[in-house]
């Protein structure tokens, strides 16, 4: 058993989980919206990227530049068509609506792509790795760069939210949407931007996931759960908390898998439940946010 290696791999996977979680965190933070179709949007994007690559023969990395703008548009479209109608209403309708959306997306994917798993082939790059500490620790070049990109995305996002005019409007809307409107903030466009960010980041995460592992139409719910656990472990309302939450979840899973392959998910879930019991506001959460 190689604990050190497990931890390193866990950290790298954690970056991906954080990227899944970012969108969930942003849409909850800004509009108090829990989108159960979040994971399915990631899987859908990976399928679209895969279709693009098969049709054009181009690299999945190029597909990113096609899929991401598309997913931003999808995000805005969904916000206008669906989510604007459930923001601020009884949360049960929110959950039912997004759950319905999730079932619909999953089964559209199933119908289009059948149950066969797919993968995005990134060629040699996927096999290259750095070897540390003799040959005990192997760091894949792709997981490493994926981690770096994830951190970069979080840095950019936190600068955007912390320093820009629209970012301030995000936070003001989160605090008190009615008063934000009175200050001249058009909260519908703020919601649209927030949701575009949510879908774009989760789409990127979905594509990154597909570059390393196989994915299939039914994967969305599991991805949603990883995203959710990362958010709660890290604490609501803190992007850096989300990164740490993702890393903790990633490490728990790789260590669990070291002990017994069947325990990978279970240990991850249990760590989540323990955090929930011991520190319900999450590790970096501020207590005023529920």
């Amino acid at each position: 058993m190689n604990w050190f290696n497990a931890i390193i791999q866990g950290v790298l996977v954690g970056g991906l989980y954080a990227m899944y979680a970012t969108g969930l965190s942003v849409s909850f933070g800004v509009m108090r919206l829990v989108n159960l179709a979040h994971g399915d949007l990631a899987v859908g994007s990976a399928f679209i990227a895969s279709t693009f690559c098969l049709a054009t023969g181009l690299s999945p990395f190029l597909a990113i530049f096609v899929v991401l703008p598309l997913s931003a548009l999808v995000g805005i479209g969904l916000q206008v068509a669906v989510f604007n109608r459930v923001v601020g209403v009884d949360p049960s309708y929110q959950i039912v609506a997004t759950f319905g959306l999730s079932i619909a997306i999953q089964n559209v994917l199933l119908q289009q792509y059948a149950a066969n798993p797919r993968a995005l082939n990134i060629g040699e790059f996927g096999n290259q790795s750095l070897k540390l500490v003799g040959d005990d620790v192997v760091i894949g070049l792709f997981p490493l760069s994926r981690f770096v990109v994830a951190v970069l995305v979080l840095v950019l996002l936190s600068l955007f939210i912390g320093r820009t005019r629209i970012g301030r409007a995000f936070r003001a809307t989160s605090d008190d949407p009615d008063i934000a409107r009175l200050m001249g903030v058009n909260i519908r466009s703020i919601y649209a931007v927030a949701f575009a960010i949510a879908v774009t980041t989760v789409a990127l995460a979905g594509i990154f996931n597909g570059m390393q592992t196989q994915f299939s139409a039914a994967d969305g719910p599991a991805l949603l759960i990883y995203a959710f656990e990362s958010v709660i472990i890290g604490g609501l309302g803190s992007l850096w908390g989300t990164l740490c939450g993702g890393i903790i979840l990633g490490i728990s899973q790789t260590i669990g898998a070291e002990i017994d392959p069947g325990w990978k998910q279970l240990i991850g879930h249990l760590v989540f439940l323990i955090v929930l019991l011991v520190r319900p506001m999450g590790i970096f959460g501020k207590d005023e946010l529920r």
């Binding site: 459930v86 039912v96 609506a97 759950f99 319905g100 079932i103 619909a104 997306i105």
Partner: peptide, 15 residues
């Protein structure tokens, strides 16, 4: 197809 319809119906009713 049935499940897609189920999801869409749930969505429409909720909205």
């Amino acid at each position: 197809t049935f499940l897609i319809l189920t999801g869409v119906v749930a969505l429409i009713f909720a909205l």
